[in-house]
Amino acid sequence: MIYDLIIIGGGPAGITAGIYAARKKLKTLLITKEWGGQMTKATEIGNWPGTKMISGNDLIKQMSEHLRMFEIEIKENKEAIDMDKKNDIFTVRDNDQTYEAKAVIIATGKIPRVLNIPGEKEYRGKGVSFCATCDAPMFKNKEVAVVGGGNAGFATAIDLIKYAKKIYILEFFPEMKGDLVTKEKLEKTGKVEFHTNVAVKEIKGNKFMESLTYEDRKTSKDHEIKVEGVFISIGMMPKVGFAQKLVELNKIGEIVIDKDNYTKTPGLFAAGDITDIKYEQIVIASGEGAKAALAATEYLKGK
């Protein structure tokens, strides 16, 4: 069975593409590991036109329910791991099956960027966390570190203030990039230490995390701080390994597309945060999903 279109990704871009494709009567399959991706972390969305305030979870629930109204095949809890194109037909493989289609839209978005240092994987959930809103309560009266001095790192520190005894904010570059107003708010608590020029090197401990070592990039001296938790907030990174051969990537690994969401491979489109468009917003990702589906529809007419 060859689909007209396979959409990979269940965030605003993928879902909107699915709605547009279904309404154009394309035989469509949507594959996604989870619904919403980064959106689920947004507790208060106030810029989705028509809705004064809504949580990411509620909005993505509405979107996925809206999608299910249409004739579209959905494979949930599945992750695309490989993809190829042979004489005009794409093959997409997930954990246990291979599917074929005439066109594909990649809308897999981004995941938290990792440090790639020893101990980061071993101590995940045992001190290492990427979600302060989830795990902050477990660090009551403990000393913790936040890696990343941008707004994401500052927001993480704000979440931790209520619980942690002391917070080290560690920034790789010479300056903290987060908003000054938040920095001042953090400084007033007297619980936060700001360190710049920090290259985090290793996370250590026994059963649970106990310390973290870093190099001061100015003095190149090594330091160790006793912290039982480290919250890594150094931005997001694209995840597109499965389609590496078929797309061109920019410096930070985003898929290069033209204004009609075409990638370098005919019939392969991309939409949302995974692409090299400038701004990353829910409403923009949705718009891009619609554009990609309309472009795919036009492409398929020619087939």
Partner: peptide, 26 residues
Amino acid sequence: TPTCPYCVTLKNFLKERNIQFEDIDV
């Protein structure tokens, strides 16, 4: 924890399938 998005998704998953569960806020 109340502000953990993945926890909300999990509890919705169980509620949608009428699975009774004890909801413990750590």
